[in-house]
Simulated assay, not measured.
Amino acid sequence: MEVGLFFGSFNPIHTGHMIIANLVKETTSVDEVWFIVSPQNPFKKNKSLLHEFDRLDMVNAAIGDDYQFRSNDVEFNMPRPSYTIDTLTVLQEKYPEKKFHLIIGEDNLASFPKWKNHDQILEHFGLIVYPRPNSTKSELEKLENITIIDAPEVDISATLIRKLVKEGKSIKYLVPEAVEKLIKAKKHFQ
């Protein structure tokens, strides 16, 4: 079984994430997409980051009963900040029967060579890359273990969603309905 790994803070998970996950599932060899909730991104220090379990709850709400998507909290028990190669190694050891692929935005492709052990990620896992607004093309796109998918350039900002919630404005259609209900019930981002 082939699994696409979609890492993110998901603060909150939004419709853009779900669109990309669905297109990866529908247009590549991937059988499932796993949302890997990251407790702390080594490149981002975010004071408005909800607790990791709250973000995991929102991912689970977004997924609902869709069997082709799963959430994963593997990084919750890893040293922080966690690096992608370390998480991939843990997942491969835990699930040796699965073939994992890393899903990233085109905006991250240019900086990918700066990632810890990027060459091992490319060699052993490969990348599935989705378009992002204002991204510049990378020479890496030509490499064998990189798949570029055709997808809309979804530019939904979690920052905007948090701002709207704080201002008491609607986030309808920006997040899945179940996520919107959870945000309201738990008073997240207020």
Rank of each mutant, 00 (worst) to 15 (best):
E2Y: 06
V3F: 06
G4W: 05
G4V: 11
G4M: 01
G8H: 01
N11F: 11
T15E: 11
I19Y: 03
I20R: 04
A21E: 03
K25E: 08
E26C: 10
T27V: 10
S29G: 06
V30I: 12
F35Q: 00
V37K: 02
V37Y: 07
P39N: 14
P39W: 00
F43E: 14
F43G: 10
K44S: 10
N46Y: 13
E52G: 10
E52D: 14
F53C: 13
D54K: 15
D54M: 05
M58V: 06
A61I: 03
A62S: 12
A62Y: 06
A62P: 11
A62T: 07
I63K: 00
Q68N: 14
Q68D: 14
F69W: 03
R70Y: 12
R70V: 12
N72E: 10
E75M: 10
R80E: 15
R80V: 08
T84Y: 02
D86P: 09
T87D: 00
L102P: 03
I103L: 14
I103F: 05
E106F: 01
L109R: 01
S111W: 02
F112L: 13
F112N: 00
P113N: 05
W115K: 09
K116F: 07
K116N: 15
K116V: 14
N117P: 04
H118P: 08
I121L: 08
L122W: 04
L122Y: 01
E123W: 09
F125G: 02
F125H: 12
G126Y: 03
L127M: 11
L127H: 01
I128A: 02
P131L: 03
R132M: 06
R132F: 07
N134M: 08
N134W: 01
S135T: 01
E139K: 05
L140V: 08
K142Q: 13
E144W: 11
N145V: 05
D150R: 10
I156M: 09
S157L: 03
T159C: 07
K163A: 10
G168W: 00
K169D: 14
V175H: 01
P176N: 08
A178L: 07
L182A: 08
L182Q: 07
L182W: 03
K184A: 15
K186W: 08
H188Y: 15
Q190S: 15
Q190P: 06
